[in-house]
Amino acid sequence: MTVKELVQVLDAKVYNLDDEMREVTSGYAGDFLSAVMGKAPTDSAWFTIMNNVNVCAVATLAEVAVVVLCEGVEPDEPLLNKVKMQGVNLIAVKEDIFGAVKKVCHLI
């Protein structure tokens, strides 16, 4: 599915959509950045509650398709600025990680 479709299914709040037609082919959930770096597949949707600027670096370097902030977490200002600058897709949902993944896992 595309990032755009993911946004619709999750009814997510959009913070930055640089490439909404990007294909999401996998997923990863976690907050430890090194674990994400090492394990999140390229073009995955990354579900996390981490909201600092380092999230952007990890998303860029690991080439995830979209970052999904969960539990109503909002990006802090440095993160928001950086995702806009780097063209990283960033969305947010109210559900916790389990709830958000449950909504989309059969579609990815």
Binding site: D31, F32, L33, S34, A35, M37, G38, M50, N52, N54, V55
Partner: peptide, 14 residues
């Protein structure tokens, strides 16, 4: 901040 998983050096080696 999300660091300190103890995966840094293992990831580098991997």
């Amino acid at each position: 901040l999300g660091f300190g998983a103890g995966m840094g050096l293992p990831n580098m080696k991997k």
